[in-house]
Design a protein around this nucleic acid. Structure first.
Lengths: 97, 97
DNA sequence: TCATTGCTTGCGCAATTACGCAAGTAAATC
DNA sequence: GATTTACTTGCGTAATTGCGCAAGCAATGA
């Protein structure tokens, strides 16, 4: 058996992850990071938005535990924290068609 | 190769599905519907919200193509349109932990 | 130390969202 | 036809979100 309290927590966390994936630009970031880590400015250019905007999107993804970051000199690289997010995205696309 | 136009469309649709799953109450609905179809009032009671609120949540899920409805007399039954959404939810929970 | 590069944070605003409540529609029963 | 049951839709509001822009912080180099 499972208490409704933990069930609620699991749902809330899953909802947070889904929320982080509910934006086209953030999904674009996930696609880019599938090939490996990238800097904020790279992602900003790829997605086609300003750097502060990208930084905020990355903060949302990080808060959801989808990405992690690493600083190398003055550059910050982001990468997928869990490759399983790609599996989520893949099935998401199937459901979406 | 694939045009960026269709890539954008695919992302937008996937984002819409993720958006529909980004609410704890709607995830609760998905859980309930995993066992089969249920009426709006049933879902309303299970989730613990008012009927109009549940109706709106179901409208969001339907707009995303996640559920379909069937009227039997004065009662409307909802069910999952695509069982794959359960797979999305399952992996979503793994990423979320 | 000062300037530059790369990123984050704060702020204001427009748009979207979730909710309660009231009103409207649809089907069954009287 | 009128009432009841089941659901949807409209409306107002508080909260959240995405964005641009300016300012701040960290690391490198002059």
């Amino acid at each position: 058996m499972e208490s409704t309290l933990t069930a609620d927590l699991v749902r809330d966390r899953a909802a947070t992850v889904a929320r982080a994936l509910s934006d086209a630009k953030r999904l674009c970031v996930v696609e880019r990071l599938a090939d490996g880590e990238r800097s904020v400015s790279d992602l900003s250019r790829d997605v086609g938005c300003q750097v502060p905007n990208m930084s905020q999107h990355l903060a949302v993804l990080r808060a959801a535990g989808i990405v992690t970051s690493r600083r190398e000199g003055s550059t910050v690289f982001y990468r997928l924290a869990d490759p399983q997010v790609l599996e989520v995205y893949r099935i998401l696309q199937q459901v979406a068609r």
